[in-house]
């Protein structure tokens, strides 16, 4: 045991160096992939937003201006003032500066009302979802009754019916009821695409709350309904927020059913109007992009503000159904 060299064995140095190298490589890989992902997600949207702030003269430049030289609010102004101005004719369209968003479709004045329609429909759908979804989820999660599993499978089954398969029968029935081109036709049919999801998110959450809560409330003399309202609802606020968000976004974004049942500005929702702009080749690009930005801003803000609720709701809803 004399004169042992103090330097550590060679392979230890090597091991350490390899460790540091691996860590650096890992960091670089993560950084690069994070940047690639951010570009992948944000680039298309940024281009849309950037074009919405360009004048019509700038937007048709080749190659494109990625960042507007002279940013303008003209396109948005055109949307918000479309209602006040005189009816759009060929003369007014080609008369003044095209850059100010004058190549706007005659239906541009319906854009804000259509947002209103979307808002009304989405709100009603949210309320109805809560009214029918909450008691059902409570019953399935907390009450043992005959046919409980069957109900779960039934709701699961309705969840997967493709919307396009509902279009023909819905159309015939709604026409017969004289409800074509009304907001109610949308409210009713949107229930088909939202209620099953709502019930599943809520079941998942209610099942996570202890059964003892239910028992304690009942021992204290609460009826089932009182137990639900006084004990469970206050505790399940996060899942209720998730339900409200999903239902709202689904209704706000829905297109196929609205395309079938709406005809005039009385019931057209925002996606319908947007789609009609895109199929009109005379609509100016800058106006179109501004309308697109207007359509994505509300749902994107909702998603970012309520991110936590949305992610937990998505996972709960998807895992369950």
């Amino acid at each position: 045991m004399t004169n042992m060299p103090i330097t550590p064995p060679v392979d230890t140095i090597d091991y350490r160096r390899r460790q540091t190298m691996a860590r650096i490589v890992q960091r670089v890989v993560i950084l690069v992939s994070a940047i690639v992902l951010a570009i992948y997600v944000l680039a298309p949207v940024s281009w849309l937003v950037s074009s919405a702030f360009q004048t019509e003269t700038e937007i048709v430049s080749i190659p494109p201006h990625w960042i507007p030289d002279e940013p303008t609010l003209g396109n948005f102004k055109a949307i918000f003032t479309a209602g006040d101005s005189a009816p759009v004719t060929y003369e007014t369209r080609s008369g003044t500066d095209p850059a100010a968003g004058n190549f706007i479709p005659s239906t541009a004045k319906n854009l804000l009302p259509s947002m209103g329609n979307s808002l009304i429909v989405a709100t009603l759908v949210v309320i109805l979802n809560l009214l029918v979804g909450v008691p059902a989820a409570y019953a399935i999660a907390k009450i043992r009754f005959w046919g409980r599993n069957a109900s779960v499978y039934f709701i699961l089954l309705t969840r997967v019916i493709p919307d396009i398969a509902l279009v023909v029968p819905f159309f015939l029935v709604i026409r017969k009821l004289g409800m074509l081109d009304t907001l109610w036709s949308l409210v009713i049919t949107y229930l088909a695409v939202t209620v099953p999801f709502t019930v599943f998110i809520l079941i998942q959450y209610f099942e996570g709350l202890p059964d003892e809560l239910d028992k304690a409330a009942r021992v204290d003399g609460c009826s089932r309904l009182q137990a639900l309202i006084k004990v469970f609802l206050p505790l399940s606020l996060p899942s209720l927020v998730a339900v409200v968000l999903f239902t709202f976004l689904t209704s706000w974004n829905e297109f196929l059913l609205a395309l079938m049942f709406t005809q005039t500005s009385a019931s057209q929702t925002l996606p319908i109007l947007l789609a009609s702009f895109t199929s009109d080749f005379t609509v100016s690009f800058s106006f179109l992009n501004a309308a697109g930005v207007l359509a994505i801003v509300p749902p994107v803000i909702v998603a970012i503000v309520f991110e936590r609720y949305i992610v937990s709701g998505l996972t709960a809803g998807a895992v369950k159904g």
């Binding site: 997600v41 949207v45 281009w47 974004n253 895109t278 697109g292 749902p299 994107v300 970012i304």
Partner: peptide, 30 residues
């Protein structure tokens, strides 16, 4: 990064379509 990842999910499909139509545009697209 996880927050901005929600952006495509939240965008309405029609607005998504409008956006890509503009990106793919044959005369002025990105």
């Amino acid at each position: 990064l996880s927050t901005i990842l929600l952006v495509p999910w939240a965008i309405p499909y029609v607005a998504n379509a409008l956006m890509w139509k503009w990106i793919y545009d044959s005369s002025y697209g990105a």
